[in-house]
């Protein structure tokens, strides 16, 4: 499969601010790719360069075979954009907006179908100014899809969505994936990246600090697990060779690369003594843990 997006050594500078400082990126066709990173990391700048909204300072960028700066009409017919900032004509109705914007594309999707898809059925004939924040955001998503794009850019698409709307948006992304569309999204929701993305990249200070599948990002797959539990108060002696550290609220934590063996020893030790290990859990570092580690807990 050819790459949908290829970026080599991308730089972008706004006056004194180096917003993007040498990014390399390849997004394969049909892939869902998520950019994570703290506020001001350079995610929107990168995405907007790929969309053709901003000129780059230097570097090579190819999107669907076009240079976004010069791709023009044919390039824009094949991409869909949901910007981070909201902007829709307040005076139009939902259906009108979808019709007007749809008419700019060769193969527009029908307004009614899109309204259904994003769950705005009751608002089809309402003026946009009367929509709630989340409803506007849903309309923005519908507008991103209106040209039936091959490649969709979603800059924080679900910020402001209620939980069920987010699930709905995820379903939409899943269905686009199954149609073979390519999606580049940014998000601050780790569960969103975990659930949607085939691959993620973490950006900090304009550079990619880690890249990979959500499950393996930053060595997550081989990272040690965390076993935590509570024991009745009083002096107890855990089996030798298990390194414990006190957690919050009297919880005992054990960090280990080999949870199977440690758990076995712990539970047999507890059974032998008739002690119960309350609230016993085994967790691997979440994507959020890895993320916070990588970005130095900046946010």
């Amino acid at each position: 499969m050819p790459a949908a997006i290829e970026v080599r050594d991308l730089h972008k500078r706004y006056g004194e601010v180096q917003a993007v400082a040498g990014i390399d990126l390849v997004v394969k066709a049909g892939e869902v790719f998520a950019l994570l990173g703290p506020n001001g990391a350079g995610k929107s700048t990168t995405v907007e360069i790929l969309e053709g909204h901003r000129p780059r300072s230097s570097g090579d960028v190819t999107v669907l075979g076009y240079d976004p700066e010069t791709g023009g009409r044919r390039f824009r017919e094949r991409i869909g954009i949901v910007l981070q900032e909201q902007a829709i004509e307040n005076q139009l109705t939902v259906t009108e907006a979808l019709r007007v914007y749809g008419s700019m594309y060769p193969h527009p999707r029908r307004p009614a179908e899109l309204i259904e898809l994003v769950g705005l059925g009751e608002k089809a004939t309402s003026r946009i100014r009367t929509l709630s924040g989340g409803q506007r955001r849903r309309l923005e998503l519908a507008l991103g899809l209106v040209g039936d794009p091959d490649l969709l850019f979603l800059d924080e698409p679900t910020t402001g969505f209620d939980p069920s709307a987010r699930r709905q948006a995820w379903t939409i992304v899943e269905s686009l994936r199954s149609l073979g569309k390519t999606i580049l999204l940014t998000t601050h929701y780790m569960d969103e990246a975990q659930n949607l993305a085939d691959r993620v990249a973490v950006i900090a200070h304009g550079e990619i600090v880690a890249e990979g599948a959500p499950d393996t990002l930053g060595g997550r797959a081989d990272a040690s697990s965390l076993i935590s539990f509570r024991v009745p108060s009083g002096p107890i002696h855990l089996p030798a060779g298990i390194e414990v550290s006190p957690g919050p609220d009297g919880v005992i934590q054990v960090r280990t690369p080999d949870p199977t063996r440690v758990l076995h020893r712990l539970t047999s030790w507890a059974l032998d003594r008739g002690i119960s290990l309350d609230g016993l859990t085994v967790t691997r570092p979440s994507l959020e843990d890895v993320y916070l580690e990588l970005t130095g807990g900046e946010e």
């Binding site: 910020t159 402001g160 601050h188 780790m190 959020e288 946010e299």
Partner: peptide, 24 residues
């Protein structure tokens, strides 16, 4: 075509910013 830089918070609605939440 774009608002002047520095005007990014002008008339446009800024959406609520939320920190990282809901771990996977």
């Amino acid at each position: 075509w774009e608002p002047r830089s520095g005007e990014r918070t002008g008339r446009r609605r800024r959406r609520r910013r939320e920190p990282v939440s809901e771990s996977a």
